[in-house]
Each structure stands twice: as C-alpha cells, then as structure tokens.
Design a protein around this nucleic acid. Sequence first.
DNA 1: CGGACGCCTTGACTTACATCAATCGCCACC
DNA 2: GGTGGCGATTGATGTAAGTCAAGGCGTCCG
Lengths: 256, 256
Amino acid sequence: MRNVDAERVRALPLFSGVSDELFRDVTGGCFLQKFPAGTTLLMEGDPVDFLYVLLDGSVELGASWNDKETTLAVLQPVSTFILAAVVLEADALMSAQTIERSDILMLSGEALRRAMKEDAQFGFAVAQELSGCYRGLVRSIKNQRLRGGLERLANYLITQRVKQGGGETFTLPHEKRLLASLLGMTPENLSRAFSTIADYGVVVNGPQVTIARPVVLERLAKPDPLIDNHRPHGLGPVGEAQRERGLGDHSPQAGL
Amino acid sequence: MRNVDAERVRALPLFSGVSDELFRDVTGGCFLQKFPAGTTLLMEGDPVDFLYVLLDGSVELGASWNDKETTLAVLQPVSTFILAAVVLEADALMSAQTIERSDILMLSGEALRRAMKEDAQFGFAVAQELSGCYRGLVRSIKNQRLRGGLERLANYLITQRVKQGGGETFTLPHEKRLLASLLGMTPENLSRAFSTIADYGVVVNGPQVTIARPVVLERLAKPDPLIDNHRPHGLGPVGEAQRERGLGDHSPQAGL
DNA sequence: CGGACGCCTTGACTTACATCAATCGCCACC
DNA sequence: GGTGGCGATTGATGTAAGTCAAGGCGTCCG
C-alpha cells in the first residue's frame, strides 16, 4: 500500500481514535487492488472475508431476486463496505461491483474482529460506523415507502445541489439508468419524471442539471431532515457516523 | 427491577460476555415502566437518552412524512430498540409506540456508551447487535423493492408458519391493519391479497391461517435465505446478531 | 336490546408505475 | 463517412396499487 493511501485510510473516522500499533495490526495483511469498470467484487450469498475500502473510483451495491435487480447504494471514495457482514462473519446480503476503474483496499476480517475485541476505542468506532450505516438504511426505507417517484427524484436533486456546493447548476454523478435503479424506478419512468419536473424549474441538459427556482422545487419535494441528510460533502474523510451526527453528509441512498 | 426481569435482560446476547460488574454499571440507573396500549414512547426527531428494552407486550416502530405513515417493524419481547441512536447520541429517526400493555426497561444511554468504551467485549457485542439490525433492514429493503404485495404476503405467511412451529395452522400475531402497514400496503389491498392467495391453498378464518399446500404457496413466494430468515423462534432470548448468524429467527420486517 | 364503534371486506374508480416497442442522438470504431 | 451499439427518450398499453364509498360483522356499552 502506498503511503498516501495508508494516510487516507488512517484518516477514516473508523481509525481516528486508535493507536498506530493497532492500525498496523489491522492493516497488516491487506491488499490494495485495482479493478476495471464493471468488475463484480462480491455476489449475494458469498462468504465475506475482507472489509473493503473504496479509495478511488465508485462501487454499486445491489441486490436481486427472481430476475429483478435493484441498486441499494452507490459509494464514493473514501468509504468502507460490508462491515456488518465482516463483524458477524456472515454471507453478503448484497452484491458489489465497480462502476468505474477503482482502487480498493481489502482488510482482513479476522484481524478486524480481533482488533475490536482488544481495543474498546476501536470497537466503539466500529459501532458508530455501523450505527451510521443503519440510520442511512432507515432513511432509505422511509424515502422508498413514504414518497412517490417524483418526490424521490426532487429530493435527490436537492441533495445533490447542496452536496456539490449549492450552485444553480450541478452534474449528475451517475448514468441515468443507474440513478433510476438507485431511486427505485425504471429508466423510462425516470425520464418521464425529469420531464414532469421541468414544470418546477428544473432544466436538464445531459448530465447537467439546473435548478432555476429552488423554492418551487422544495415545495414539491418537502425535504425532511429525518429522511434526507443535506450537508456539503466532506472535505476530508467523513464516515457514516459523523454524517449522521450532523458533521458531514448523507443521502438516503448511501449507507453501508 | 425485579430479579426475574434482570435475568431476562442479563440473558440478552448483548450482555452475554460481560462481567457482572459491568452489567451492574450499565443497568444501574435504569427504570422499568409499564405502559398501556397505544402509548407513544418516542416520536420521530426526539432526542434519545435511553436504550429501550421490551420485556413484555409489543411495540411498533413507525415513520411518517407528509401525512403518510408506515410501520417499519413490530417488536416482540425480549428486544432492544433505538440502539443506533443511543450509540450516536442522535435524534430518533422513527417513532415507537406500544401496541398492547407493555413492560419496558430504560437503560441510560450515557452509561451504555461509557461501558462500550471501557469494555471491548461489550463493545463487540453491541457491534454484533447493530450488524444484525443492519442486515435485517437490508432484507427489508430487498423485500420491499424486489417483491410485489402478494409475494410479500406469501413470504410473510411462510415465515410465520415456521416461526410458530411449522404446523398447518397458525395465528396472525397482529391486527390485519397493522400487518398491512408492515407489509407496505393498504388494509384494502391486504384483504384482496388474502382472497387472491386462497387459490394457493391459504385458508383464512379471522386471525387463524391454514396453509393447506405449502409447496404451492412456496412456488408463488419463492422464499430466499438472502431476504427471509426462517428459523423457529428462539427458546431463550435471541439477539439480532445471533439470528443473522443462523442461530435464531429473523423476518424481513423485524430488526431494530 | 339496541346502537355505536372499530375492523374487515367488497366493489368501482383513479392513479402510479412497469412493460413493450420504436426512435433519436451520440460516440466509437472500422 | 458510414455504421453499429448504447443510453436516453417517447408513446401506447397493461398491470399493480391506492382511494373512495358502502356494507357486514363482531364487541362493548348505554
């Protein structure tokens, strides 16, 4: 692992309170791998032996059943994933695959569990991270069950605007097909939702989105701090836990 | 707190590995309260100062937005709830209210966090519990997004059958209106789903349900261990973590 | 004994969303 | 300079689910 990468991992909230020695223990037998776009890292039901840390690129977490698929989250660096499965030594409940070329660090699950049992501070940090992920999922379910497709899109756009600095115009971070899956709808429906939402002052030009009248859009979206989590996206690594505590950002579709 | 109750709490997986001393510390300043049916214990957005432990009765965890409501989980004894909010000292993302007369133990959140930072074993147990809850929610989202209402009902019935011993006939544990909300549909729609599902050998008589031809029903339900978690319900207290590891039961709608 | 209430059910209707199919635009590649 | 492929869009249509309204059937209570 390069030194730069080590520092980025070290700076994760997960490792903030731990000693250098423990950090070395945990990151001892780790791999740093580069994967091309579209690589499946993990399939549903696979046993999980490593904690994954996304250092560069992006990763989709998804699930499927009966020939249907859905996207549960799209991760941006720096994020850890499948922490819960590692803690329980359980099989993965979702699949993970790279969206673009990605650098991924793989930490030994066994070393991680050992460290948790030895260092209460670290165990607490893990519990905080898990709590943040948990709350992200609660937000996601509320978003899914209580809002319609149009409202989900409107809130997503508002979240993105804030996350990207709050300017009038911003860029969609993913392909629309992926965004549709993340929002729990079909690409066709997302397209229609975009054209409907034009009436609320949203102008779409490819991946460029301009929110002309935020007030009007908010009247449609009715954003709620108990579902959405608007914060300017972290300078510096921000864990799920911190975001949940109001020190960083969290969207309903992130988490884990 | 009565001795019987103390033992039941002590037997929770959360406290399985901890010393008597630490257990006394955590349960030191705790209350045992009895609430009548329909009492709101917590509203969305409330600050959370206690970890709740349901000892008797049942509790609904719900959420609302824009005049819509939904049920996220119905808890049975012995379960803890709002652990994630306690760990993060954050506001509640869901509301909690008693369904029937319930005995609820309230443990100091502050004492709990202190204990986690002192005792790595306990911290680990908390992390395991959180992981189990997290995975329960992942199952719940998959259930919600990938299946239709009829399929959700079918799988719910199969889960209940197993949970209640696997006999031909079992009893619905809740009112149908509540069940509908838990399954993410309206009471009217649930009623229709029940009549549709009669074609698959399900006979409903008030709260009594008989599954005449399980094989036929399973062909409709297509249960999946990565969504559903069929296990005979615990003799003895079984935490989320253990259930996730295959030592107990877990349905998609349970989980903190 | 009636009556009121709550829960469940049923039917007609509306709305939201998925599906199927065709087309367009864009970019890469030959 | 095609041309093939992929994503996005658009329209037509089907299906699932929510809504509104009415009625049945218990239980509790005056």
